[in-house]
Each structure stands twice: as C-alpha cells, then as structure tokens.
Design a protein around this nucleic acid. Structure first.
Lengths: 340, 340
DNA sequence: TTAATGTTTTAAAGCGCTTTAGATAAATTT
DNA sequence: AAATTTATCTAAAGCGCTTTAAAACATTAA
C-alpha cells in the first residue's frame, strides 16, 4: 500500500506539503504542486480515508437505519438517499432494523462507535417506549434527522410527506365521485404519525362534507397484504362500503382480493385506492389509484438536512413536509348512483 | 468524548491494560479487569472504531455496490445482506450504481479509499468493456465477490441462482402442460450470465422434447415493464404463442398487458410465467407463476464468502449456485388441446 | 535466600493522515 | 545592502487506538 509518506519521499518534499497539495490548499508553489501530483498518480496513491478521518475527526459518513428495505417503498428511498449522498461526497453506512426497536438502538450505537458524522433514521412503526437513545444523541450533539416518520417529542428535524394533505385530497376526490361510506384501513399503531396524519386528512374531508358520521377506521394488526385481506373480508360480511382506502398500496391489494372473493367488482361496486405509489401500483392488471409520495424529494431533503446539521452546527428545527400527488388510475369510479 | 486514555487515567492503569481488558484478551488480573470494566461503563466509554481500524488495519466493513435498490428484488437482497453482515459484526457501506458501469468503478474506488475489508458487487447488466478495476482488485488482493451475476473471466468468487436449472424446470413444466410454442423474453445483453444461463436451461428443456425448432428468444431493449409490453404487442401481431416466459417478473407483467389488449386471456389462451418471485408476484389479481430465487440464501452465502476471503486469505475459487424453486400460481394452465 | 519461572503491567512506537507554528527562501521595500 | 514583507516549505505533535518488548511484581523451586 502506497502512503502519503511514500509520495513525499519520492518527491523529496515533506508529508505536510503533499497533504497540502492533495487537499488543494494554497501555500504551495505550482512547481512542487505539479511534481507531487504527478508522482502521486504515478505511484497509484490513494488516500487512506480512515487515517484522514481520525486526524480530522470527521468521517464523511452518514449512518442510515431503515426499518425494512424489502418493502419497495423503502428500497426506493434508500436508492435516492444513496444517490444524493454520493453527490455530496458522503458515504452511507446502512443497516436494516427489520422493524425491531431494539435493533434500531443497537445499530445507532454501532454507528456512533464508527464515528458517523450524522444519522438518518427511518423509524420502525412499532410502538417505542424508550426514547433514551434520542435523548443521548441530542445530548451528545450528534446530528440526526428522521425520514418518512418521526417521534414528535424527540429530535428536531424530520422530512416526510404531508400525509394529511394526501389523505385529504384522496378522500375529497372519492367524495366528489359520489361515495359516502369510505372506509379507511390503517396500521396497528394509530398514534404513529404515518397513520395519525392520514386519518386527520380523511376526517377533515369528511367533516367538510358533513359526513363525519360516516367515518370508519379499521385498524389492521399489521400493515400488510394478509391483514388487509382479512379485515376487509370481515368487513364485507357485515356491510358494503362505497370505497376503501388504505395507508399503503399493499394492504389495499389484500382488500381487493377480499372484495373479489365476495363477488364485488372494482371499481364498479367498490372503489379502492392505496398510498405510496410503489413501483408495482402502475403495472398490475388494474392499475391502482393512489397517493404518490415524492420519494426522491424526501431523500434529497433528508440528505441535505443532515449535512447542513453536520456542517453548521447551529440549526434549530426543521420539519419539512413534502407535497404528495394524487394519482388517478383505474380502481376508482363514480358511485353507481351517478351516471358513469 | 471519552477516550480509552480517560478510562486508563481514572482507573490508574496504562492505556495498554485498558485495551487488553476491552478486547477480552488474557494477561490481566481479574481485579483490574473488573475495575476497568466498571469505570468504562461509568464513564460511558464507547470505543472509537476509526482509531481502531487505523491501528489494526482492518475496518470490519464490507462495501456493497448494487445496481438498483429500487428494484424490489435487489432491495430484498440488500435487506438480507445487511442482516447477515450485522450478525457477523460487519458493517455495510452501500452505494447504488444506478446500473451505470462508470459509477460502479468510482464507487469501488471510494470503497478502497475507505479501506473496506472486502467488496460485494451486484453488477450492472449493461455491457462492460473495461475490466481494469477487477484486475486491480485482484492484483491488490482485495477480497471481492459477485452476487446475483458475475463476469466469467474476472473474479474467482460468485454466488447466484442456478438460473439454468430454474429455466429448465419452468420450461419442462410448461411443456408438460402441453405447450409447444414457448417464447422466451430476455434482456438486452444476451451474453450476461443472467440471460445466458436462463436461455441455456430453456433450450435444454426444448431439446429433450424434440422441440428445438420451436425455440424463440425475444431480446428486449431494457428488462422492464414497458419493454416487455412493446415486444409482446409486436409479437402478437404476427403470431400467438402457447406460453411466454421471461427473465424477471416485471417484464412479464408488461407482456400480460399486451396479451389482454390483444384480446387473449391469461392463462386460458396464453400461459405466462416470470422469474424472481418478487414480493408483488403473489399479491396481484392473478398471482404469477414464477421461479423463486432464494435471496436470503444468496445473501448469506455472499456475506460468508467475502468474510472467509477476508479472514483467511487463501481461498482459491468458489462459485456457488443456489437452487431455485418453481412456484406454481394462476398464470399457467394446460394447453387448450388438453382437457383442463 | 536465591534463582528461576510465571503473571501482570506498561512505555513507547506505530497506524496514515492533518495542522500548527516556526524555519527557510524569495520578493519587495527602504 | 539591509530590513521587511510575503510566499513556500517542514518538523513535530496529535488523532485514539493496538501491539511489542521489556519492566515489575508475585510465585515456586532449588
């Protein structure tokens, strides 16, 4: 392995000089600069970032703890986070928590040990009872930001979709189609921002139309396909709503399965809509009406925010909401009372 | 920040002793060991992995360069890689190449600069013309393994599905249903192992049934939904095959769209099958017959292999093929000649 | 009691870099 | 030509850890 020292010796200058050259710092003559550069190239010198980090007390590394990369939504998020981090010359240390709270904590500790400059957390949707770790991060002044979700009381930076607005828009749209009974499928922890804000938007829309009494929230034990299927199967055995919406795209596909099995057609008998607009939403047989989260924007803002916090340590609070977009496809149709 | 030195001073011992204790090395009395441990805990000492790496010339970090995490298949792979790396006390530095060859190279260089202990490469499917980087890795004796795909001439370690076997099984199955004309949709670079081996399996199965002359490969410009749609639309305007298979699940959904638009029913008129068994394959309206890759196994073997290479530098070659599994769902049915 | 052996402990060097303060050389001013 | 100023360069310390070789101490054997 060729080190800075080697370059210095070959070039007949001090290590300090080589360091200055390689970091494009002023105070070295064009002549020596050229000589050093040539030699470095010739020897195939590649700086040792570990040594550099130790000396500078900065690793140019961001730690990313993410619940579940398997989920295409998070996969996409990781993709854009990686892309933007690279652009800014940061590397990403990534670890999947598998949606387990304890894993989150231990991953964060590993990150700290590895001296990451900042941390991006895509938190588990499970219920957390112990917030020690975030208090600690704050006390130790480690820059961290929440992406996609967050804990309202802890951390003063997050980036996520304006869930309220998304659900509001979607519900309004369904109401405009003449639907009255719109059932909202939600995840297990209805206090999680991911669920709560969506429900808020839903309620606001209903209220505005004087349909508050039609509100029906069904809380699924897990926010997955099977859970959506089961809950809707159960639901349909007692009543037939006009429409069903959900906090993600996957659960609503489970719902659709139950709907088909019950002998109803989508969207003729029941309109359905998802949330997220994951990759498959547009390519399935009946493309899904859904609310698209601008994942790339969330990723970009998250990276920028954490870097900002790293570089000027003075940021107070920034809570960024990214506007969602209503994507109309084929699973929603006017209520059968209204003409098609 | 509390350092090893702080702990040493408080405990009234040397830094060397503290180091021995913290690394659970012999040669220190139980008494001092206890004292040091207690103090370390009390002070909230957390070792600085960067300093450690520099001293030991080992980072316990694996660099992962992956084409496209957005693709649920790779997302899932990354998930399991992360999980297994954590279990073995390695961290993962991840970067997405966005399927661009040049990015792959520059990412690898960043990894080298960061002194990763080894590299896992999930290569782009684009055609590579310059293999310098792999030669360099080899020359510098950097452990690296290819996952999911590989370059036959470069690198002596890879882990991937036995694509040949998967396509063979699937084709055999379709033949057993009475189909004769089975069209195979493949990606742009038919020399990439990902495509080549699949085609081999397909041909072997046809040959065995004396149907070699029925073989038809359609090469799509990109291995995505739209490309699958277009090629099959074109195909159906001239002939109607018995079945269509593909190198992944996404393209075959494109194909299905074209099939529907042409007025055919799946699977009554045309059977279709994908490859990969990505998450959505089972939850769409008509669940997809496909070949499941054992992603978790691929991930586990990749991590184990690279770590093995890191720890005992003597491995020669290991080319691991993971068995795929045929998943029968609802998009395949007997040929209409045969009774249902 | 001394020598020999074994156990614990530590001083010091080193990992590859950055940075600071001072040395040296060159350019400018009087 | 000497005195300043300015531009280049470098010695040395330091980042937080590991490791080696030797020192210090305790134990056992002779």
């Amino acid at each position: 392995m060729v080190t800075l020292k080697d370059v210095a010796q070959k070039a007949g200058v001090s290590e300090a000089t080589v360091s200055l050259v390689l970091n494009e710092r002023p105070g070295v003559s064009p002549k020596t600069r050229a000589k050093v550069l040539a030699l470095a190239h010739e020897l195939g010198y590649s700086p040792n970032a570990v040594a550099r980090s130790l000396a500078m007390n900065k690793t140019s590394t961001i730690g990313l703890v993410v619940t579940d990369i398997e989920n295409p939504f998070y996969g996409s998020l990781v993709h854009f986070l990686s892309e933007h981090a690279q652009k800014q010359n940061y590397s990403l240390l990534i670890a999947a928590s598998g949606d387990e709270i304890e894993n989150e904590d231990s991953i964060i500790n590993v990150f700290l040990s590895r001296q990451v400059d900042g941390i991006i957390i895509v938190p588990s949707q499970n219920v957390r009872t112990n917030y020690q770790i975030f208090k600690m991060l704050k006390k130790r002044d480690i820059p961290f930001v929440f992406a996609v979700s967050y804990y309202p009381e802890y951390g003063d930076a997050f980036v996520m979709t304006d869930y309220r607005a998304g659900s509001y828009k979607l519900t309004k749209y369904l109401l405009s189609l003449g639907h009255k009974k719109i059932v909202h499928l939600t995840g297990p922890n209805s206090e999680a921002p991911l669920n709560k804000e969506r429900i808020r938007g839903y309620h606001e829309a209903l209220d505005e139309c004087g349909l508050a009494d039609k509100s029906e929230i069904i809380s699924c034990s897990k926010a997955d396909f099977f859970s959506g299927y089961q809950e809707v199967k159960q639901l349909l055995s007692v009543e037939k709503p006009d429409a069903i919406i959900s906090i993600n795209d996957i659960m609503i596909l489970g719902a659709r399965k139950a709907i088909s099995e019950a002998g109803y057609k989508v969207p003729k008998d029941i309109s359905i809509a998802g949330y997220d607009d994951v990759s498959f939403a547009s390519i399935i047989e009946t493309p899904l009406t859904t609310v698209k989260q601008n994942i790339e924007e969330i990723a970009r803002l998250s990276i920028d925010l954490v870097i900002k916090k790293i570089e000027d340590h003075t940021i107070v609070r920034s809570r960024l909401l990214v506007a969602p977009e209503l994507i109309l496809r084929d699973t929603t149709a006017p209520h059968s009372d209204q003409g098609a």
